[in-house]
Nucleic acid binder design. Sequence first.
DNA 1: TTCAATACGATATAAAAATATCGATATAAA
DNA 2: TTTATATCGATATTTTTATATCGTATTGAA
Lengths: 223, 223
Amino acid sequence: MEAKLRPDALPLPTIRRYPVYLRAVRARRARGEANVSSAALAAELGLDPVLVRKDLAMSGVAGKPRVGHSSAALEAALEAALGWDNVSDAALVGAGSLGRALLGYRGFREQGLSIAVAFDGDPALDGLEIRGVRVRPMKDLVRLVRRLSLRLGILTVPEEAAQACADLLVAAGVRGIWNFAPVQLDIPPGVVVQNMDLAQSLAVLSHSLETAAIPSPARARRP
Amino acid sequence: MEAKLRPDALPLPTIRRYPVYLRAVRARRARGEANVSSAALAAELGLDPVLVRKDLAMSGVAGKPRVGHSSAALEAALEAALGWDNVSDAALVGAGSLGRALLGYRGFREQGLSIAVAFDGDPALDGLEIRGVRVRPMKDLVRLVRRLSLRLGILTVPEEAAQACADLLVAAGVRGIWNFAPVQLDIPPGVVVQNMDLAQSLAVLSHSLETAAIPSPARARRP
DNA sequence: TTCAATACGATATAAAAATATCGATATAAA
DNA sequence: TTTATATCGATATTTTTATATCGTATTGAA
C-alpha cells in the first residue's frame, strides 16, 4: 500500500538534528547494535521521544515495534537525506587560523566533505601544503575550481574580503557557500549560502547566562 | 502611560538575530548615522521588515516615525540584552588548531568576551603563550578557573575528552560552556551549554544543495 | 498459547514564530 | 499651515514546530 509519511521537504529543524542522530546511530552500530529504538536515542540525546520518532519516520525507514529501526538502514537513510553518502569536494578560501583548523578537522570525511584545494591572498602561503592540501593564490581560484568542478566553497577570510571572495566562488560555478565570515553575503539565487556565525551562537549562551544568572540552582531543563 | 511591549523572555530566534543587527547598527553608527530605521536594516540584511521591527521593539528602545531608532541607544540596548556590555573572561580548554583559531579571533572583544587562560593536556604546550594567552596544564584547571572566578568555559577538545573536561569546568564553578565538540554533554542544571556543531550547519547546507540541485535556476529566495 | 510490555504510527492539540494588516504619528515638502 | 509619506506600534492571521494522546503490532516470557 506504500503509505509512507514522506513530505517532499524535510523541516529545517529536523535536518539540523539528523547529524546528531547519525552520530549516535553510527556509534551504536560500531558497538554491534543491529537495531536502534527511537526511545533509546531520545534518552541518550535528551530529546523528546515523540520528536525523535517523527524525525526518524521522515527518513523513510520503518521501525518494528519492540525492536526499533535497523541501524544500518537508518545510517544509510540519514546520510542520504543529508547528501553525505557520496563525498563531495570543496574549495577552502582563506588559509588563516580558522581555515587551517578546518583543514585539520578529521571529522569532515564522515560528513561527506573533503577539502580538495585551498586559496589565500597572502603570497607567502603560495604553494604551501597544509595537512595534505595545497594552498593556491587567489588568481587561480576561478580556473581551478572550475576545472575540478567543485560544488562547494568554504569561506574563512576576514569580513572585509568575504564578499569579493564569494563573488569569485560564484563566478567559478560553486553551488553552495559555507560562510564563516560575519557578513551577510549578497549572492545570486541558485547558490545556497549557509552562515556559520560564532556570534549568533555566543549570543544565545551569554544571554541565557545573563538572564538565568541568579535564580534557584535546582531546576531541571528536561522533565 | 508606559505600555512597553516587553516580554520577560526574549524569543530565542530574536536573540540569535541580535548580533546581526548589532553589527549593522555599529557599522552605521561608525559611518555617522545617528538613527537607523528598521526598514533600512531589513533591506540590508535581507529580512522581513516586520520581523526586524518586532525584534527591535523587544529591545526596549522606541523609534520615532520617519526617523527610526537612535543608533546609539539601539547599540547599547542590544549589547545589554546579549550581556555583551561588560566584558567577561573565559577559559579555553583545548589548545589545538580550533582552540588557537579562537584565540586568534579579534572579534570576541566586541562580543563581550575575552579569553583569560587556556588549558591543554599536552605537556609540550605547557607554559606556551599563544596570542598573549598562556597555556596551562589540565591539572591546574579547577584551581585557576576558580581563582580567576571565570564564568565561561570554551571547549575545543577532541570528542573523547569533551565530557571529562566539561566536568572539570563545572567543578571549577563555571556558569556556561561553549561546546565545540560534537558530543551531547551531560551537565547539571544551573550550567548553560551552547553547542557549536559544525555538522549541524553543514547538514543544512549539503541538504539544500542536494534538494535544490536540479530545479529552475531563476527563483528568488525573498520576494 | 496466552498475556503483558515495549515501541511504532497516526492523529490531535498546543506553543512558538513568522507574516500580514491596520491605524497612528512625526517629519518634510507644498 | 496643510498635506503626503515614511515609519513605528499593535493586533490578527497563518505557518511551522513541538508535544501529547491513543491505538496497534510484535516480541518475549509466563
